[in-house]
Design a protein around this nucleic acid. Structure first.
Length: 855
RNA sequence: GCGGGCGUGGUGAAAUCGGUAAACACAGCAGACUUAAAAUCUGCCGACCUUUUGGUCUUGGCGGUUCAAGUCCGCCCGCCCGCACCA
């Protein structure tokens, strides 16, 4: 019995597809396009199982759509800028570029063994000047179109390394390398005006109906629209007033203080003459930017001594505090505190002994006026109390009333705020796209003229000392001002790497175009019909890309508004974890089972502690190397396993036995088709005039499977499609060895089976197609269509329930009259036995489904 | 704290619209083939009662709606994810 030789077959078809450019595409106005894209990888050096799953899913979609006649764009490239390359430069002394391109070579070779249907001619690497020069041009266009501005902003500063840290480089408030406490520093940085599009990005979410609900909700929350009002509070003994933003103007009569941010202009002004306040502000600024630090920080305030007048009562004066929890970046940087209606304000009031006046009471209280607040603020809807003209109203009514009142008195107006901040794109890094501007002492900030692009990164840099190598490069940053010709300096910051990934999908449409994005090509291919990747990019990457697409449209690059009209977020790959006798994490490949079924270390035989299955990660060592799996089982087996058992959006449990199962199935398929117990008819044999009932039934199943798998693949229910195909294989297997006319059904069944499984396991399918005698190339063969006449049933089995419990079943013609079915059901012996002579109270017949007799 | 999701056999999972719960696998058990093993093939495989036939129970828990609930509603428990001083 010959085993299926996957090595030979897989490399044969991979080189065939390669040499014949099977998956090369161009715009074709006569064909409907389909753009399928998987999130491009960071070239870390080796692919991991997450990649294998991601690209398998995309490849199934691409091959399936191609078979359905679509002109399929399916490209791949490299998200090649980023910190790891600089770390490698520091640790191993290799240039980031060299390191990156070597990794790309390695990973491309690995990907090619998976048999993915990419148009490799469209491959891009974002660190290539031929890529990022267009990005620099886009930035200049953004400048012209008022989508960019510069402002001072906080960064994480490592005082030992003298360098700026990315958020992920701050661990427990300290620099990851130096371990020194991180400080906040202000730097002038570039920002993209994503907030200009906040409302559009939010409302357009409802049209992304092929996105997971979960991702849309996450984006909606991230954008964080809030409707409130801006209120003026006159400062006592001063000419100016304090502007406060609130979403609860209805609680205005419960106010007991105002609080401003440590960076509020009034706070800064007062600090000039108040050293204690100065010290307090400094303390606030020292608090790290990490979430953890913010969470743990105690709510603290500093009484400025200033007073404000209540907007609705001249005689009511309230104190003004500087508080560490008020953010300058949100609203007006100032709030009013209503302790009875907000837990944080209540805590603050208790701490500084401020009044607590309840203004909303639970609606069901008999005597709401007597409602008091103890330790918990009341934040629900209810009835207004102690609130002058609003007393007795609901919260919603009170809001309306106060809006009207404030408008009338001209002390405040409605305002919509967003949690979303503008996108800071400056990074003090070497391995990124240089920001194409020049700083001139006379002319200020001057964009690099378009004909001088790209601004390329210098090659001769060293990473021996901390800080940005661009900044200390001896010559790179020194240029003449394009305006006045005097000596000037280049910007040494580079773009956030989310910049590159915000338009790469558009570049794939015309990867070699001199214009960056060829409008005609992009108009043909965009938007991406199906985007596939990890849910970890649900907010940032996907939101930035949505914004960028709008910005590019504004600048005339694109017609599309949304980059991705369909989105599939795949689950993680999980694996059991193992610890050796000394408590160290172990690779799964080092854990083996002995005769007694115990898990031991394969080297020293000592007992291994088996832990729960969690996301594969290098730190826990619970990883399986795809290269090893592909070299020992083949790409088809790996792909099939990825698609079996679990739906794509759910986590997938990696098990050796599961991989084994996939491998065994492919071998079985191979044997059934290439070594049948009795020969089935040759290709193109005419259908026999008659078939046995059994063969007819099998034929019906073949065509039902075509319909079901087509439907499943269309809905990304790959695990169900696999189950259907296995079911069909089992059925065809029972017919193996049959002779005479019925054997014709075997050939028909195998041919369809091979065509249906082709998107999932393309190599073995291509080979079996040839084995079945075909000269055509399976990738070029169109998707099968089921024979409708075989999908219809003449008779149907209907279960009979009595009081909702299944008691019997009935085989009836499909279109039998309901009355007739009812009669037959009541005639059933089992039903009669339960009715015990009494008449049925009611009989419910659901056509083609079920009969329920109510006793 | 806020928002979202999930909970089905020993395991991964199926179950269009509320209509036969557990398809398809993995693991396990038994048998065939084999000197033996592997591979392969066949059968069994939610729990309990029953010799079989069959019956009773079963989708995290409790209640509700319905002729009928894994599916809809309410409350509770557990797990996972996202956001989190956002005024």
């Amino acid at each position: 019995m010959a085993r299926y030789n996957f090595k030979e077959t897989e490399s044969k078809w991979q080189s065939y597809w390669d040499q014949n450019q099977t998956f090369k595409v161009t715009e074709d106005p006569d064909k409907e396009k389909y753009y399928v894209l998987e999130m491009f990888p960071y070239p870390s050096g080796r692919i991991h199982m997450g990649h294998v799953r991601n690209y398998t899913l995309g490849d199934v979609v691409a091959r399936y759509k191609k078979a359905q006649g679509f002109n399929v764009l399916h490209p791949m490239g490299w998200d090649a800028f980023g910190l790891p390359a600089e770390n490698a430069a520091m640790d191993a002394g290799v240039h980031p570029g060299q390191w990156t391109y070597r990794n790309i070579e390695d990973m491309r070779a690995q990907l090619k063994t998976m048999g993915l249907s990419y148009d490799w001619d469209r491959e891009i690497a974002t660190c290539d000047p031929q890529y990022y020069r267009h990005e620099q041009k886009m930035f200049l266009d953004f400048l012209e179109n008022d989508l960019v501005y510069r402002k001072e902003s906080w960064v994480n500063w490592d005082p030992v390394e003298n360098t700026v840290l990315a958020n992920e480089q701050v661990v427990d408030g300290c620099g990851w390398r130096s371990g020194a406490p991180v400080e906040r520093r202000k730097l002038n940085q570039w920002f993209l005006k994503i907030t200009d599009y906040a409302e559009d990005l939010r409302t357009a979410l409802k049209d992304l109906d092929r996105w997971p609900e979960k991702v849309r909700i996450m984006q909606e929350n991230w954008i964080g629209r809030s409707e409130g009002m801006r209120l003026k509070w006159q400062l006592v003994d001063r000419d100016d007033s304090l502007e406060v933003y609130t979403t609860r103007p209805d609680t205005l009569y419960g106010a007991s203080f105002c609080a401003i941010s440590a960076n509020h202009p009034i706070a800064v002004e007062l600090a000039e003459t108040n050293p204690d306040l100065q010290a307090f502000i400094e303390e606030c600024n020292k608090t790290g930017t990490s979430e953890e630090a913010i969470e743990k920080a105690e709510k603290k305030g500093f009484d400025t001594g200033l007073k404000v007048k209540h907007p609705l009562d001249e005689s009511w004066e309230l104190p003004v505090y500087v508080a560490n929890f008020v953010l300058m970046e949100y609203g007006t940087g100032a709030i009013f505190g209503c302790p009875s209606g907000d837990q944080r304000d209540l805590d603050f009031a208790r701490k500084y002994d401020l009044p607590v006046v309840p203004v909303v009471a639970p609606a069901d209280l008999e005597n709401p006026e007597s409602f008091t607040i103890e330790n918990d603020a009341f934040t629900d809807d209810g009835v207004m109390i102690n609130s002058d003209f609003m007393t007795g109203m609901s919260v919603a009514e009170a809001k309306k009333a106060i809006f009207a009142k404030c408008a009338e008195l001209n002390i405040g107006e409605k305002e919509v705020n967003y949690r979303l901040r503008d996108w800071g794109v400056s990074r003090q890094r070497y391995w990124g796209c240089p920001i194409p501007v020049i700083h001139c002492d006379s002319c200020g900030i001057v964009p690099v003229p378009a004909d001088q692009l790209p601004v390329e990164l210098p090659e001769d840099v060293d990473f021996d000392e901390p800080g940005n190598p661009l900044d200390r490069h001896p010559s790179w940053k020194h240029v003449d001002c394009p305006c006045c010709g005097k000596a000037a300096r280049r910007e040494t910051d580079t773009f956030d790497t989310f910049f590159e990934s915000s338009w790469y999908f558009a570049r794939y449409c015309s990867p070699k175009s001199e214009n960056g994005i060829d409008k005609a090509a992009a108009d043909y291919w965009m938007s991406v019909d199906q985007y596939i990747g990890g849910v970890e990019h649900a907010v940032l990457h996907l939101l930035y890309s949505r914004f960028f697409t709008r910005a590019l449209k504004k600048c005339g690059y694109l017609s599309a508004e949304e980059p991705f009209t369909g989105l599939l977020t795949q689950g993680m790959i999980c694996h059991e974890t193992y610890k050796d006798a000394d408590g160290n994490w172990m690779l799964p490949s080092d854990a083996v089972r002995n005769e007694d079924g115990q898990v031991i270390h394969k080297n020293d035989g000592r007992a291994v502690n088996v832990g729960p299955s969690i996301k594969m990660s290098k730190s826990k060592k619970n990883v399986v190397d795809p290269e090893l799996i592909i070299s020992s089982y083949g790409a088809d087996t790996a792909r099939l396993f990825m698609l079996s058992d679990s739906p794509p959006e759910r986590d997938l449990e990696w098990t050796d036995s599961g991989v084994d199962g996939a491998w065994r199935y492919l071998n079985r398929l191979w044997r059934l088709i290439t070594e049948p117990k009795a020969a089935y008819p040759a290709k193109d044999t005419a259908q026999p005039a008659t078939l046995s009932d059994e063969a007819q039934k099998v034929r019906a199943q073949v065509h039902k499977t075509i319909a079901a798998v087509t439907d499943d693949l269309g809905k990304f229910h790959f695990n169900k499609a696999v189950a259907r195909l296995r079911e069909l294989t089992n059925t065809l297997g029972t017919l193996d060895g049959v002779e005479g006319d019925d054997a014709w059904v075997l050939r028909e069944g195998y041919e369809y089976l091979v065509r249906l499984i082709a998107p999932m396991t393309p190599h073995i399918a291509a080979e079996l197609w040839a084995e079945l005698g075909h000269d055509s190339i399976l990738c070029e063969v169109s998707w099968p269509v089921a024979d409708d006449s075989l999908l219809k049933e003449d008779t149907i089995v209907m279960p009979i329930q009595v009081n909702g419990k299944r008691r019997d079943q009935l085989e009836v013609p499909v279109n039998m009259d309901i009355k007739e079915i009812e009669k037959l059901a009541l005639a059933s012996e089992k039903v009669q036995a339960i009715l015990d002579g009494k008449p049925a109270r009611k009989v419910i017949v659901v056509p083609k489904r079920i009969i329920n007799v109510v006793a």
